[in-house]
Amino acid sequence: MKKTVILFVVTSFFVACKPTVQEADLTKLNGYWEIQKVEMKEGEDKDYKVNPTVDYIEIKNNAGFRQKVMPQLDGSFRTNNLQETITLKNQDGTWNIYYKTPYGSWSEELIELTDSILVVKNQADLEYHYKKFKPFSKK
């Protein structure tokens, strides 16, 4: 019984210490993000070793856009100028990203956001893990 209580306390501590995204963190979304992996709800991961495109996100006052760009060897980016409109909303302490295009709309839950890590979960319980993109450097 004593071991069960200790296990419960330790587990509760780690669950309670799960970092939550704060409104002040939302500016960290700005910039270029490269997908690393997708965690499937069955527990499998799909890793992305090489990415021909990265996501560029620009947010101001909880609204902005996301668009796919293709990094070039000279440090520039190519794009087709198609953008997804983004709105950020806090619902019961959880930040959600709402996307809209002329073709549809969807949302993702913002799970983790730091200077170098972005994790979002979609409605199909797929978790998308991104890292800040580092542009190619000229040598």
Rank of each mutant, 00 (worst) to 15 (best):
Q91D: 13
E112R: 14
G104W: 09
I117D: 14
S107Q: 14
K100E: 13
L82W: 05
T87W: 02
Y98R: 01
T94R: 12
N80F: 08
W106E: 11
N81Q: 07
P102M: 04
K121N: 13
E112F: 03
Q72I: 00
P102E: 13
S107V: 03
Q91K: 14
D125E: 15
Q123G: 07
T85I: 01
D74C: 01
S107G: 03
S76R: 04
Q91W: 00
T101W: 06
E109N: 04
T85W: 00
Q91C: 00
D92H: 06
I97K: 08
Q91Y: 05
R78G: 09
T87V: 15
N96G: 02
K100N: 06
L113K: 08
G104D: 10
Q83N: 03
T114W: 10
I117S: 15
F77A: 01
V120E: 09
E109L: 04
I86V: 09
L126P: 00
T101I: 05
L110Q: 11
I97G: 03
T114F: 10
T85V: 02
S105M: 05
D115P: 04
V120S: 14
G104C: 10
A124E: 14
Y99T: 04
N90L: 14
G93E: 08
A124F: 12
I117M: 13
N80M: 14
Q91I: 14
L110H: 10
Q83D: 00
W106S: 15
W106H: 09
D92Y: 04
W95N: 08
G104F: 10
N81C: 00
N96A: 00
Y98E: 07
